[in-house]
């Protein structure tokens, strides 16, 4: 059993405590916006926030997330209003296939919470998500735009 709090809602889940948080979110909680890309914390498609920090949920056992605030992409918009980063993504028409973008957005939101006006170097060192479509030019522009929102 595990008790986790996802997007402010508590869930009691019958699961092996070693199960990666990613799969609990996708298969038990039913939130599929968090994606599987590699399973070894390389690609960042599974990025969620735990107590406000970006974490690659494919490599964190669900037991490690108990008692903490988990935020997924589904919990980013508030009362139906997009987060400023999502708005910037929309305005810059960032996604191509879109698969990595939820993780990319979660990483960007965490960066902006840490550094409200990140430099290009901050972006380079913090946003290490893989995007095979190659949206990076728009990602960078959207992150900078979100700081002015």
């Amino acid at each position: 059993m595990a008790r986790i709090t996802v997007n402010r809602k508590s869930h009691d889940i019958d699961v092996d405590p070693n199960t990666p948080l990613l799969w609990v979110l996708r298969e038990q909680v039913g939130l599929t916006g968090t994606k599987y890309g590699c399973g070894i914390a390389q690609c960042g498609a599974c990025t969620v926030h735990i107590d406000g920090a970006a974490v690659r949920s494919c490599s964190l056992p669900v037991s490690g997330a108990e008692g903490k605030q988990i935020t997924t992409i589904e919990g980013l918009a508030q009362n139906g209003v997009l987060h400023p980063v999502q708005k910037a993504w929309l305005e810059h028409d960032v996604p191509q296939c879109g698969y990595c973008q939820t993780g990319m957005i979660m990483a960007a939101v965490a960066l902006l919470m840490e550094k409200p006006k990140p430099s290009d170097a901050d972006i380079d060192s913090t946003i290490t998500n893989i995007c095979r479509c190659g949206t990076f030019q728009q990602v960078r522009a959207a992150i900078h735009a979100a700081t002015n929102a």
Partner: peptide
């Protein structure tokens, strides 16, 4: 023009093949 298919890619609502869920489905 901007793409027609962006918004659901930003909110996690877009259903890719990996996200398909059917009643009684096994994996």
């Amino acid at each position: 023009l901007k793409r027609l298919d962006t918004i659901d890619k930003l909110t996690g609502q877009l259903i890719y093949g990996i996200d398909v869920k059917l009643p009684g489905m096994l994996n």
